[in-house]
């Protein structure tokens, strides 16, 4: 029988993969992909809890808002990446080094 635990393990795996992606990638677009994995894992949690824990639709509505936010974030991110690419001809974070951290 498929239960809550199955979905949670999948979401935990997606979350860990997302974190890994964020940590190892230098390319801005790849980091964004990692963020999308994290957001998807959160959404999967919400929908699973909506069915098995809360017993109402609030989790699903939360997930819809997360999707909206993700879209807005990616749009702004891509705008900045494009603008930066115009200037530097690179989107790799390690070459974005005018500001030494």
């Amino acid at each position: 029988m498929i239960g809550l635990g199955h979905y949670l393990v999948i979401s935990a795996a997606l979350f860990s993969l997302g974190i890994m992606c964020v940590l190892t990638r230098k390319n801005a677009v790849s980091v964004l992909m990692g963020v999308e994995l994290i957001l998807n894992s959160a959404n999967l949690n919400l929908v699973a809890f909506s069915k098995y824990a809360a017993g109402n639709l609030n989790g699903q509505v939360f997930a819809i808002f997360i999707i909206i936010v993700a879209a807005a974030e990616v749009a702004v991110a891509l705008a900045i990446v494009l603008s930066m690419y115009r200037m530097l001809r690179t989107v790799n974070l390690d070459r974005a080094d005018t500001l030494k951290g």
């Binding site: 964004l32 990692g34 963020v35 994290i38 991110a77």
Partner: peptide, 13 residues
């Protein structure tokens, strides 16, 4: 530009 990109990536994560 760099600052905005850094801020966005850290913020999103």
């Amino acid at each position: 530009n760099e600052a905005a990109l850094k801020y966005l990536l850290f913020g999103a994560v």
